[in-house]
């Protein structure tokens, strides 16, 4: 399985065969607390790297979610509509947000690998 890459704004992406699956990190879901609603884009929407692509809402507040890579939305996680708490239970698994057809694989270089992200998060605590 391809490696996870992270943004500084706490999204993750995993690219396989030119398609990136993305979501938010475990640190992000911990910070949010209980997720109660997610607003996902319609498939076909084109986004830029670090452009807003979704909204995640906890009991307390709404937060914007940014695309780790530029591309076109090809699929969204329908299970989140009925069970947004999947994001708390499995942020890097069943709690994925959407899949993007990657426009420029070179952009991956701007993201952090697992180790770099772990030390980045450690620095925030």
């Amino acid at each position: 399985m391809a490696e996870l890459r992270y943004t500084k704004s706490h999204e993750w992406a995993r690219v396989e065969n030119g398609v990136a699956t993305m979501g938010i990190s475990n640190y992000a879901q911990e910070q949010l607390g209980d997720v109660v609603y997610v607003e996902l884009p319609a498939p076909g929407k084109k986004v830029t790297q670090l452009g807003q692509v979704a909204v995640v809402e906890s009991v307390k507040a709404a937060s914007e979610v940014y695309a780790p890579l530029a591309g076109e939305v090809v699929e969204v996680n329908g299970a989140l509509a009925d069970d947004p708490a999947l994001i708390n239970r499995a942020p890097v698994g069943d709690g994925w947000f959407l899949k993007l057809k990657v426009a420029n694989a070179g952009e991956l270089g701007a993201l952090m690998d697992e180790a770099a992200y772990a030390s980045y998060v450690a620095g925030l605590k």
């Binding site: 704004s9 706490h10 992000a28 995640v56 937060s63 914007e64 979610v65 940014y66």
Partner: peptide
Amino acid sequence: MSESSSSS
């Protein structure tokens, strides 16, 4: 994800 700032 957007973050809120904390005051000092």
